[in-house]
Write a protein that binds this DNA or RNA. Sequence first.
RNA 1: CGGGGUGUGGCGCAGCGGUAGCGCACUCGCUUUGGGAGCGAGGGGUCGCAGGUUCGAUCCCUGCCACCCCGACCA
Length: 564
Amino acid sequence: MRSSQLFGKTLRQAPGDAETISHQLLTRAGFIQQIAAGIFSLQPLGNRSITKIRNIIRDEMDRAGGQEINMPVVQPRSLWEESGRAETFVPPLASFEDRRERDMVIAPTHEETATAMARAGVTSYRDLPFTIYQIQTKFRDETRPRGGLLRVREFEMKDAYSFDADEEGMDRSFQAMVAAYKRIFKRCGLEVVMVEADSGGIGGKDSNEFVLLTDSGEDTILMSNESDYAANVEKASFIKKEFPIGELGEVEEFDTPGIKTIDELAKAEGVSKSKTAKAVFYSVDGEIVVVTIRGDYEVNETKLRNVLGGSEPRLATPEEVKAAGLVSGSASAVGLTGMKSVVDDSITMGSNYLAGANKEGFHLRNVNIDRDFKADILADIAEAKKGYLSPDGKGKLVAKRGIEVGHVFKLGNVYSSKMGADFTDEDGEQNEILMGCYGIGVGRMLAAAVESNHDDFGMVLPQAIAPYDVYLAGLGLDDADIAGKAEQLYNDLMDAGYDVLFDDRDAPPGVKFKDADLLGIPARVVISSRSRQNGGAEVKARTSKDSEIVEESNVVEAVKKLLG
RNA sequence: CGGGGUGUGGCGCAGCGGUAGCGCACUCGCUUUGGGAGCGAGGGGUCGCAGGUUCGAUCCCUGCCACCCCGACCA
């Protein structure tokens, strides 16, 4: 491609509303153009990068035995009523009425459609297993798109769905996808780690996220410093401190004027926060739930949601707390009736806690679970933090930031049971198909790649996803001699199989160098009268400061050495 | 959805009760050619939209819309 013919101009300054570095650079470099909040067009350069990513994904999906299909973006709402997600997926699900007044949705993901496909196409265990995938547009009406391509409303996703007859098969299909994902990210030149994750609105038991670690990421990842344990903070567990359980003391009330917080209470009594039982009140489906956790830990609301069966907990407002007859600052589960009690298992790892007396200005000593208050649900609902012990017993947790670029789920029968996707097994019995689903955000991958690969001058793209391999800058092309040599190099490099962007514009050298850097093309070749005086052309990697002079006939060889 | 901010040529910004300006970009000419060139001459904007106040509104008032950021939520 010749720069003189390339559509899209580079910008010296990024639009004022682009704050994220990838948003700024992708816009300045002419990769993307914003149309509305969270809605973007890809210009030629951006589209080339995306195409390269897409091709790598497709290649690896096929290699892992996936079969490419295509499912509709617009679907009847009834399909979503079958799965129950018409109600639960509400905020991101965009819908409209067609001219016959039928309710339609714009697909934010395709579990329902994929299940419908399997339901129609599978009758026997002989039809299983198989994995289908597509690379296609999704629309999610996010309440808050942000960061350029990082969180958008319309986006391209590779989504795959596996169908198996039994657990072992499902695990095998899952592992095949995990392996494919690892190859995909590696081939794209991205350092992506797999972490345990919460499955959120998709459902199912196990799920893993693929996260590109970068400080600008919006997810927090906790990793062991001694093992390969890694999990999203939403999911991460840890080994809680245990204290010997002595003889249970008598509950006694004592005066605590003005004490409202666990910190104040522990300080006033001269004990560690782990000797206190903290009560937190949540509003869940209109009911107040009391959550008790040891004072040295915090509640993880995602874990809480999961133990509550998926209902969304929200911290109760002061008014709700008051209306329930609770005394904030001196509250506990002791003596409370008529409300659900959730207790973190840390409470069982100690005894004789200080807790609220449910009376203004008073607390209790020697409060113990079971004897003094009950737990309707006893589970791990504590938030892991850096410095805590890794759950595998090896090392401590460290915190990192990352961008989720892929997510894999073991769905099991979540969709097949609701939607009646069955098959007949060897014994003639009807069974539900076991599913997995696997997503990669294609555009987000590009944005994430830029977030983690840039410098003060622009993007530094891995070759696999750069729009071009080589930036060929001809300087002083009004000299027919130079122009001829530049054309020659252009052709030689293309003949060698490289994607070449030939900067043939009538522009000063500085402009060409700046653009080469901004675009992040991995190799740069310069041909000019000066380079020729020095013995040929200059070859330079985007990542290096220095260039190398090579004879014109050796340029392809030198580029090969640089890029492979 | 709560809080905050911003809307003025393609991009970045200034301006201000009297119908708009700067830098970059763009067009033409000449000169230039190793890190976003110089000089000269040009083109391009119903100042987000709608009402209101005023002799007169880009500017003041009201409403709306859009976009960005923080939070809530979310692959």
